[in-house]
Design a protein around this nucleic acid. Structure first.
Lengths: 225, 225
DNA sequence: TAGATTGTTAATCGATTAACAATC
DNA sequence: TAGATTGTTAATCGATTAACAATC
């Protein structure tokens, strides 16, 4: 009979999705606080800014380790890098942009990605009128070239902004090319192999959420995460 | 002593956010099924397509009423209009687009909004180089004109695609103009009066979610809702 | 020291799932 | 009828919150 092994790492289970979502929001607040010249912050302050409870902030962070100083609070720069490490954004992630429609073109120019460690490394589209051209300094490749380019550029994640009708078909090519994560903007439920992650952002769905809230009195603030 | 009034409506409490999020996804699936020529569907089928449990689908729907036929399933067109009614999307929602950056311009051309009962009714920006011009058939108004135009066009919701630095300031103008709901793309936590709803979509946050999942093995599909 | 704040436990709250009688 | 499927209850599971000893 083997003893239950004592936990070495702060926590090695996968964090609940809700926790990870809030981690990103904490990071945004910390960036804002730092820009404002502050160096430390308490869980209560973070909680108030995001309309949460202090205990929740501490418990979320506790999932990944002990980053605070009892009686003092959290050192902003320390906590930032701890959260980045927990999220995996403590390194640069080259990104494939697949689909050069309206949304795709907007994402190429989207400054926030750069600010948070993401860099569009290559742009793909299957329209022969677009492939071979240069858009915003990026040469546009055919999706068929994805396997080779993903490999040579070390790309493992992709933003998918193709029409819904072709999304699944393109996703199949992506996963066959070694893409491990897809940020999907097409309004369809994608099927992927078990080792590939998908996060879907459907803007119409978000707008429907808003309409529900507006229609049913209440009000209040919520984050899509 | 007054009796507790018997519940008349199927349910008059506010549905949990998670339920409302899934309702939109059900609607997308129903649209796809209908396009494929089907007329009825079971909770098990819907659940399988979205990687959920059948009981959850039924329970979510039960929140709003009884839409199914025991032994038969759901009539697709019936269920669609029931869900639309529950969400409040059974009517057209004119939308103000505020902020004509990359994302704003992409949203003007975004076809999915039209498909789901949303219509951009007016476009606003504070850059004097942009106001007065016509973008994609829309005259661009100054944000100062919002109160009058919101009133004349019956606009009560807005998509906010301005830079983070000015977002709160613009939000204040929006709420003063009678806007009741804001789809916020600026990566900041907004403060609004209690009777105004905010749904925030932060694309960098979504990408961070994806990186976390990719970094920590697993995989799997998740919906931002 | 006194005051502040963390990390963590236990209690509460809410959401998901299983199971099944009612219905077609 | 037999088979299928709903709506709903009760059981389970997970997430949030309150409370507080430990720490600075």
């Amino acid at each position: 009979m083997s003893e239950k092994p004592k936990k070495i790492q702060p926590d090695d289970r996968l964090a609940p999705r809700a926790v990870v979502g809030r981690l990103s929001l904490y990071l945004r607040q910390l960036e804002a606080l730092q820009a404002a010249g502050l160096t430390r912050v308490s869980s209560t302050q973070i909680a108030n800014m995001l309309h949460l409870r202090d205990a929740q902030v501490r418990k979320d962070l506790a999932f990944f380790g002990q980053f605070g100083h009892p009686g003092i609070g959290y050192q902003i720069d320390e906590l930032q890098s701890s959260i980045r490490k927990a999220l995996g954004t403590d390194r640069l992630w080259p990104l494939a942009l697949v689909g050069l429609g309206n949304l795709g073109r907007a994402l190429i120019r989207y400054k926030e990605f750069d600010k948070h460690g993401f860099r569009i490394a290559a742009v793909f589209d299957n329209d022969p009128k677009k492939t071979g051209t240069i858009v915003q300094d990026y040469p546009v490749y055919s999706i068929d070239q994805l396997p080779e380019i993903a490999k040579s550029h070390g790309i493992s994640i992709a933003a998918l902004t193709v029409p819904a009708e072709v999304a699944q078909e393109v996703v199949n090519k992506l996963t066959e090319s070694g893409i491990r994560g897809i940020l999907n903007f097409a309004p369809v439920a994608l099927s992927v192999p078990a080792d590939v992650s998908v996060v879907s952002v459907d803007l119409s769905v978000q707008l429907e959420q808003l309409v529900y809230k507006v229609s049913h009195a209440g009000g209040g603030v919520s984050y899509s995460s």
